[in-house]
Amino acid sequence: MTMALHIKPSLNDWLIKLSNIEIPAMQYTLDQMTHLKSKIDDISIRDLSQLIRHDPLLTLRLIRFQQEHRRAVQTSDVNTVDHVLLMIGMAGFFREFSTMPAIENTLHQSPSALISIKKIISRSYLAARIAESLGGQRHDVDPVEVITASLLHDLAEILLWLIAPELAQQIALHIQRHPGSRSHDAQKLILGFTNNELQTALAQHWHLPALLTHLMDERHIDEARVRTVTIATSTARHLVHHWQDPALPDDYQNIADLLSCDGDHAYALVRNVMIKAAHEWSWFSVLPVASQIPQQ
């Protein structure tokens, strides 16, 4: 499954490679699916939706499934997990997705890659929670759309660790050995393109909903909804480094500008999200960011 390191695949090569693999989910996600399936008569669409939003890979497969099976009479995209579930039903969901492979099995020979993927998935969930809070305070037209876009924002990075962990490790080591270097530059050096470019190309290749693709595209940063997604993912990325990351003050200021509030309110918002997200650390087997919060 791993790409050869002596050849630098083109962006199109990556699209073909990623389109020919079966996307897995976390084992914990699959275990929760089994639990909910056992009491299908007592659960709701919301219960399933809450499960799915923890796992960006399952979310991706669900949205791709809907796009691939959309009917000719469907004239608009379905942009949220809830709406997809309403269309395929709970029984349809379990029928199609209960047999997904587990990341743990896919990467059983690459334990370091498995740890890295779980950290990124945990970070993606954290970004979605931050986006949920920002969208709620902004009275966004549909906060679930920015939540979904934030959850999927770093899919290219997750998929890189999944099928080419050596290349992903090269990028991580380059950044580590060159303090102050930008991740985009390291990606360009190792891959020949950035994760954002791969992400945009994948979204178009897989015909993901145009709105979600747009919300994840940082080239449209002048739009408030795109800025919400970008700020949420940036803040989550810096938080997982450590609570005193030097880039965080800029994140708080960006939040303050977005919400027209002061810096203290922005910090409190992020801190509250961290504490809530920490209660679900076992889903990802990753130490929660809230454990690093300085005592007041």
Score class of each variant (00 low, 15 high):
61 R>V: 03
61 R>S: 15
63 I>T: 06
65 F>P: 00
65 F>Y: 15
65 F>K: 06
66 Q>I: 00
68 E>W: 01
71 R>E: 14
71 R>K: 14
72 A>P: 03
73 V>K: 13
73 V>I: 14
75 T>D: 09
75 T>F: 06
75 T>K: 08
75 T>L: 12
76 S>P: 00
77 D>I: 02
77 D>T: 11
77 D>G: 06
78 V>S: 05
78 V>M: 11
78 V>L: 14
79 N>E: 15
79 N>F: 03
80 T>D: 04
80 T>R: 12
81 V>C: 11
81 V>M: 10
81 V>L: 11
84 V>R: 07
84 V>W: 05
84 V>E: 06
85 L>F: 09
86 L>P: 00
86 L>K: 15
90 M>P: 01
90 M>I: 10
90 M>Y: 00
91 A>D: 12
91 A>W: 00
93 F>C: 08
94 F>A: 07
95 R>Q: 15
96 E>I: 02
96 E>P: 00
96 E>T: 07
97 F>R: 04
98 S>T: 05
99 T>N: 14
99 T>H: 13
100 M>D: 07
100 M>N: 10
101 P>K: 07
101 P>M: 08
101 P>L: 08
102 A>G: 02
102 A>H: 09
103 I>R: 02
103 I>G: 00
104 E>R: 11
105 N>G: 01
105 N>C: 05
106 T>H: 09
106 T>V: 15
107 L>G: 03
107 L>F: 08
107 L>W: 09
108 H>T: 08
108 H>D: 10
109 Q>F: 13
109 Q>M: 11
109 Q>V: 05
111 P>W: 03
112 S>F: 06
112 S>P: 00
112 S>H: 10
112 S>T: 11
113 A>K: 08
113 A>G: 08
114 L>W: 02
114 L>Q: 11
114 L>P: 04
114 L>M: 13
116 S>M: 13
118 K>N: 14
118 K>F: 02
119 K>D: 01
119 K>Q: 13
121 I>T: 01
123 R>G: 12
125 Y>F: 15
126 L>R: 10
127 A>L: 03
127 A>K: 04
127 A>T: 04
129 R>F: 02
130 I>D: 07
131 A>N: 03
131 A>L: 01
131 A>R: 01
132 E>R: 12
132 E>K: 13
133 S>H: 11
134 L>M: 06
134 L>P: 07
135 G>M: 10
135 G>F: 11
135 G>S: 13
135 G>I: 09
136 G>N: 14
136 G>V: 01
137 Q>G: 00
138 R>A: 13
138 R>K: 15
139 H>V: 01
139 H>K: 13
139 H>E: 10
140 D>C: 10
140 D>L: 06
140 D>P: 03
141 V>D: 14
141 V>P: 00
142 D>R: 08
142 D>K: 12
143 P>N: 06
143 P>M: 04
143 P>R: 11
143 P>A: 12
145 E>V: 14
145 E>Y: 03
145 E>C: 14
146 V>K: 04
147 I>F: 05
148 T>N: 11
148 T>D: 12
148 T>L: 08
148 T>P: 04
149 A>G: 09
150 S>P: 01
151 L>N: 12
152 L>H: 10
153 H>R: 13
153 H>A: 13
154 D>M: 07
154 D>A: 13
155 L>F: 12
155 L>Y: 09
157 E>I: 02
158 I>F: 02
158 I>R: 03
160 L>Y: 04
160 L>S: 07
161 W>I: 06
161 W>E: 14
161 W>F: 14
